[in-house]
Design a protein around this nucleic acid. Structure first.
Lengths: 145, 145
DNA sequence: CTGTTATCGATAATGATTATAAAATAATAA
DNA sequence: TTATTATTTTATAATCATTATCGATAACAG
């Protein structure tokens, strides 16, 4: 945990940004709720528990900053809110979502499903892939019962 | 063209909706600009050229309705606006996007890239896949020069 | 025709996000 | 240290996309 915060601190410093207390509190919330696909509002409310004086705009700005630095991924499941996921340490970014059309749950799967597919896209369409977003919509295990 | 409109008319009637002049004008715009990933605002402005009396709310309502009927796909490239794509006739829905991080262009590719991947998801995670969204972010052919 | 229902257009309301301006804080230089 | 400058924050207003409301109108059923 502390290790990951240090890492992020260095990433910020590398671009001459500071890890202010507000930013640190925000990052800590993201670390604690890593699998939760929090919206900016969610993050705001959770950060407020630790640092009640923080403003909503600061949370938005912090998330945007972290997103530019590729510390978090800003994702969108089409429900009108952006959600923010901390990127995993090291390793490439192979993380996809299963959105249940029944109960709305979002399950995260980590697996390099697209290695071959990316090669096809690069070869057949001449498009140089840097990143991808893959979301499956369907019925989760629980709702199938 | 007329053939596709008839088809959509039938789909509407099957759910006891009518193909009103406003809805038809909206569908015609989508048919004419099929590859363009139009936003609701875009559609509104284009429909207004043919049917100046149409209101923005009607366009939104129509797009939502067509989306529920699976006549169009409502997609989101993370730029804060929903975009609407008419689904192709027949054939399953295998249509993905290449978003250029340099110039912002969106190229559409039609290819069943994910047949095997869907099987993996169903087998390994017990998730029953109904649909998927796949977007690649990277550098398009033109911008690589 | 007459009542009922669906649809429409105008516009107000909402909700997420962004911009602004003034205050606080931190970094820097003299 | 002290003055100065730049960065960050907070509170709040503004914006923008989308949705809800409501009175008017059109299509339809009896």
């Amino acid at each position: 945990m502390e290790h990951r915060i240090d890492r992020i601190k260095k990433q910020l410093h590398a671009q001459s940004y500071k890890l202010t207390p507000q930013r640190e509190a925000t990052v800590r919330v993201l670390l604690e709720r890593e699998e939760d696909h929090l919206s900016a509002e969610d993050v705001y409310l959770l950060v407020k528990e630790k640092a009640p004086e923080i403003g909503l705009a600061t949370v938005y700005r912090t998330l945007e900053l972290l997103s530019e630095l590729k510390v978090v991924d800003k994702i969108n499941f089409g429900d009108g809110v952006s959600r923010y996921d901390l990127r995993k340490e090291g390793a490439a970014h192979f993380h996809h979502h299963l959105v249940c059309m029944e109960c709305g749950s979002v399950e995260e799967i980590v697996d390099d499903l697209l290695e071959d597919v990316e090669k096809i896209v690069e070869n057949d369409w001449g498009f140089q892939v840097k990143d991808h977003r893959l979301t499956f919509h369907g019925i989760c295990r629980d709702c199938q019962k």
